[in-house]
Simulated assay, not measured.
Amino acid sequence: MNNPYIKEGNSIKLEVNIIPPPQPLDGVIENIFDDYLVIKCTHSYIQKEPQKVSCTIPHNEKVCMFPSTLERSNENIVFVSMPEVHTVKLIQRRQYVRVPLITDITCYLLVINNTAVIGDKAFSATIKNISAGGVLIASKLSIPEQSIFGFELKIEDKNFVFTACVVRNMKNHQDQVFEHGCEFIGLDDKDRETLISFCSRENNKVK
């Protein structure tokens, strides 16, 4: 495939569709063959059966996204099928409108330090802003990056359950809280469209 984004040495993010929850993996494309990509991940991957996977290759101005299948793995090396040309999409970075939303929520940890959490492990947090791509939350607890949690949020009189992965953790010294930038994972198209519409309307209110 002649695609400037699918190149050896490029970083790639994988979201393996294991439920619950989807498993995020970060890696680098090491080799490209006619039928598959060889990706070296930062963590080992232990699933043995082929799994559907959503792939994201970030770039300076655009992001390359496509669905595929994770065929097999060898510790931290995974083999992903080459995507069909018509399934590869390019979107602008910061495609989604981000709006302030001060709302208290209860979060339930699903994965921490690359280990599934057994039992109910909850923490309180406050949403500071949200988009169709992710959410910024503040908490007195410091949640490690790559941790995965779920939470419920009411939008347009309907309760939604979201799953998010912590991609950034920063200490807010002024407010004495930790701010966590999180990406939504496993979000279906219908729920994402609801978020896009909600954020668009909220954004128009403040203009």
Rank of each mutant, 00 (worst) to 15 (best):
I155V: 15
V167P: 01
D189K: 14
P83F: 01
F178V: 09
I148G: 02
N129A: 10
T163V: 15
E61L: 10
V16N: 04
G181V: 09
C199S: 11
E8I: 12
V111Q: 06
V16G: 03
D34I: 10
P67Y: 07
K154H: 00
V38D: 04
L153E: 08
P20Q: 12
H180S: 14
D189P: 01
E30I: 13
L187P: 02
E145H: 00
H173M: 11
P67T: 13
L14T: 06
I196M: 11
R168A: 10
T42Q: 11
K207H: 14
C199K: 07
D157R: 11
G27F: 02
A132V: 03
A125V: 07
V111M: 08
V38N: 06
V117N: 06
C41M: 07
I102L: 12
S197H: 11
S11K: 14
N113M: 02
K128N: 15
V166K: 05
E30F: 02
S44F: 01
F162Y: 13
I148P: 02
T56N: 01
D188K: 09
V166P: 03
T42N: 13
K62L: 10
A125R: 03
K121C: 10
F149S: 08
K154D: 11
G9W: 04
N159C: 00
V28S: 04
I91Q: 12
D35G: 11
A116W: 00
P67E: 07
I18G: 01
Q47A: 11
R201V: 15
K48W: 02
K121L: 10
L101A: 11
R168N: 15
E49P: 00
Q176I: 05
V85G: 02
D157N: 15
K40A: 11
E156T: 12
G186W: 05
F149H: 05
